[in-house]
């Protein structure tokens, strides 16, 4: 039996990797993947707690998160595609229409 702490450590590592990936990568798709990694890190934490607490609540939330992530991926990729068509680039520093 692996203690829950190990799972949590893996979850934190994944989450921090996601953050780092989001900040150091320059193209939207990789950033988008980083966000997905963070989401799954959170999922892992939820499952761990649910399992150790013996309740199903956390697992149900995870299903929701996965559903939302799927929807998000569909829309997000579509948006990125359109951005690319318009700007011929998906580098974040090229996309700054909202600069004040």
């Amino acid at each position: 039996m692996i203690p829950p702490t190990y799972y949590l450590v893996v979850s934190i590592i994944l989450f921090v990797l996601g953050i780092i990936g989001f900040f150091i990568k320059k193209d939207l798709i990789t950033q988008f993947l980083s966000v997905e990694v963070m989401l799954n890190a959170a999922n892992l934490a939820f499952i761990t707690f649910a399992h150790s607490a013996g309740s199903l609540d956390g697992q149900i939330i995870v299903f929701f998160v996965i559903t939302v992530a799927a929807a998000e991926a569909a829309i997000g990729l579509a948006i990125i595609l359109l951005v690319y068509r318009k700007h011929k680039s998906i580098k974040t520093e090229d996309i700054h229409l909202m600069k004040g």
Binding site: I19, F22, F23, Q31, T92, E93, H96, L97, K99, G100
Partner: peptide
């Protein structure tokens, strides 16, 4: 003055968010 905070770069916003 305040509008210079609005860089338009997602990363800056994400940093503030973080």
């Amino acid at each position: 003055l305040l509008s210079s905070l609005q860089t338009g770069l997602i990363k800056d916003y994400a940093l503030v968010f973080l």
